[in-house]
Every structure is written in structure tokens, then in C-alpha cells.
């Protein structure tokens, strides 16, 4: 059984600057922030390493961090742009009985995170859901399609983003409410 501090040290030794920060000061679960371009390698290490043995991915969640940058336009109005999206990986090791939360932060403009489907098969549907709801694209995912929403849902509309607006039309039909 390892604490999140120890797990952070192990990851830091192995991956260096790909591991950004350990966030411990807020309740309840501490998490480790990593760069989105190396999640597959990190996941593979977490899964295979004999000290860690994270054999179970409890849940993978896509989150809109709702932190857009305010810019003043020339005419005095303000507009919002940018911000980040996050993927949270909640991992658990059945043999060693320890947990860790990994968070990968990616830009909202072009959200791209490496898929961990090859490490934990259960990530397949979770990643599809994160793509469907928050619009995070997962590199090397075998079948990144919508899962809960209809396949013909508007390509650039992701309901769990904080700036989501209810559509007025669906497939040319007026939505009456």
C-alpha cells in the first residue's frame, strides 16, 4: 500500500517533466497532474509496475474546467476563449489495495489526450463517453464515436461543456421547449 506522495515520487523518477504536480491541499482525494501527450506510457507503467499494480480503472471522467480567459475587444465588450478540459483517471489496485487519481489537462481549443484503452479495456466506453459529452478526443482510440447521444448529433456540440447552449433545431426540426 502506497500513499499518493510515494506514488508521485515514483512517477516523477520515471517520467520527469511529464508529471507536473501533486495536488494535496484540497479535500478529499489528492491527484497528480500529468501532461496529456504521455498518458498511455504512464498508464502502462502504473498498470505493470510491481510496486503499483493498478489493475483496475474505476472510472475515467471528462470535465470542463470552466476557466476561459477573458479578453477585452476593441469596442469595449468582453469575450471568452480558451480554457482547459481535464480527464480524471481513478485507479485502484486490487492486490495492493491503494488508490490514486491522475488528471490530464488539455487545451479546450484542440483537446487531445492519449487513449489508455490498450491498458485497461474498460476505458474504451468511458473515453467514448468523455468524447461524447465533453468533446475530448483520444489519440489511438479504436472507435471514437458518440455513445449516449445519437450518432447524428451536431458534430461540434458537447452537452457537458459549461458553455453549451441548448440547440433550437435538431436535424432541421424545431425543438418545442
Amino acid at each position: 500500500m502506497k500513499s499518493s506522495k510515494e506514488i508521485f515520487e515514483i512517477l516523477k523518477d520515471e517520467f520527469g517533466d511529464k508529471i507536473l504536480e501533486l495536488k494535496e491541499d484540497i479535500p478529499v482525494d489528492p491527484y497528480i497532474i500529468v501532461t496529456p501527450d504521455s498518458t498511455e506510457k504512464i498508464a502502462r507503467f502504473l498498470h505493470d509496475s510491481s510496486d503499483l499494480q493498478f489493475d483496475s480503472l474505476m472510472v475515467l471522467s471528462g470535465v470542463d474546467d470552466n476557466n476561459p480567459v477573458k479578453t477585452k475587444n476593441e469596442d469595449g465588450t468582453e469575450s471568452l476563449s480558451g480554457g482547459t478540459l481535464s480527464v480524471y483517471y481513478h485507479l485502484y489496485s486490487i492486490p495492493l489495495n491503494h488508490k490514486i487519481v491522475i488528471r490530464a489537462v488539455t487545451e479546450k481549443e484542440n483537446p487531445m489526450v492519449q487513449s489508455v484503452e490498450s491498458v485497461w479495456k474498460t476505458a474504451d466506453w468511458h473515453e467514448r463517453e468523455a468524447f461524447d459529452m465533453v468533446g475530448i478526443r483520444f489519440e489511438n482510440h479504436p472507435d471514437l464515436t458518440r455513445i449516449l447521444l445519437p450518432y447524428d448529433w451536431d458534430e461540434s456540440s458537447f452537452p457537458l461543456r459549461k458553455d453549451y447552449k441548448n440547440p433550437e433545431f435538431y436535424q432541421g426540426m424545431k425543438i418545442p421547449y
Binding site: 484540497i26 478529499v28 482525494d29 480524471y88
Partner: peptide
């Protein structure tokens, strides 16, 4: 609740 995150199962 305070600012933070939790996973309950």
C-alpha cells in the same frame, strides 16, 4: 460542500 473533489463508491 467545500471546494474539492471526491470519488465515492
Amino acid at each position: 460542500p467545500p471546494v474539492g473533489s471526491v470519488y465515492g463508491r
